[in-house]
Amino acid sequence: MIPVRCFSCGKVISSVWEEYRERIKSEPPGKVMDDLGIERYCCRRMLLSHVEVVDMLRRYQ
């Protein structure tokens, strides 16, 4: 699961996660983040580097 907030600054970033995940299929991630108001690099790395492991784990539940 995407962390609720940015580890460094505490901005809520998870609220844009689902839109981000959909939009990066057709747009460059940097542009999407600019659009969604994710400005600082601490918040940007949260979205950019996130791997949704839950989807993989769920199969073995």
């Binding site: 699961m1 609720v4 609220s15 996660w17 689902e18 839950v54 989807d55 769920r58 539940q61």
Partner: peptide, 28 residues
């Protein structure tokens, strides 16, 4: 999602509607 948190008072709510809290599978 965070919007599924139901408070007993209508004046109180989550500031963001779409924070994913947990993904539930079939029957979970």
């Amino acid at each position: 999602y965070s919007r599924d948190i139901k408070f007993s008072e209508p004046a109180v709510r989550a500031a963001f509607d779409n924070i994913p809290l947990v993904v539930l599978g079939e029957g979970e």
